[in-house]
Amino acid sequence: MKADRLARSTTGWQDQVLLFYLRNLLNQTYGQSEALPAERTDSDSVAASQPVLSAPAALPDWAQSEFQVVYFRIGHTVLAAPLTEVRRIERLDDSTRVTVLPGKPDWFQGLTRFQGEIIQLADTELLIGGKRSISLEDSHRHALLLNEGRWGLVCGEIVDMVRLRESDVRWRVNRSRRAWAAGTIIDRLCVLVDPRSLIPASRSKNLRVLR
């Protein structure tokens, strides 16, 4: 709306080009892929009705109210994951025996046991498309044990745990690419990972007892 008014009041072709660019940028950034938290006003009914702005359906179910996140390091990057999806954090050290299975993809580090339970270890860094920087010998390795699928996301140092509100995150609506990125924690500019999407359904089948 403001962009249109400004367009009418300007005459120079540079301004027109600049406005065209800015309008496109606004549409691309907030209207299609990356949704900002809605700041609704009564006069802006169009924006308020747009499903892309803070559409509840787009939020993961763990993000409906206040929630805690754990910040963890992967190489030089810090990511966050919701604690509601993490049931335990285990430290991986020299005594952690990892059984490597043949024929598995690189991101599948192997199997290990925590408290008598067999856990599948996934290299978080490789899953998000990076290169492995955490070696199997890294003494700061941890595994975030997920609620579902008996998976452990291997990461580096555990940085912090913080309580957030829904509005603290810029949620992504279009997650056709990088589906694992639920959004960005605004004050830390840190990607909030959706663990369930990080290990898609095809990978997340539970270990089950054979009969």
């Binding site: 199997l111 270990l207 007892v209």
Partner: peptide
């Protein structure tokens, strides 16, 4: 039989089957 857990269902490589 109850002690055996299925193999992780990841990997499409031949050797995984």
């Amino acid at each position: 039989a109850s002690e055996i857990e299925s193999a992780p269902s990841v990997g499409n490589e031949e050797s995984a089957r």
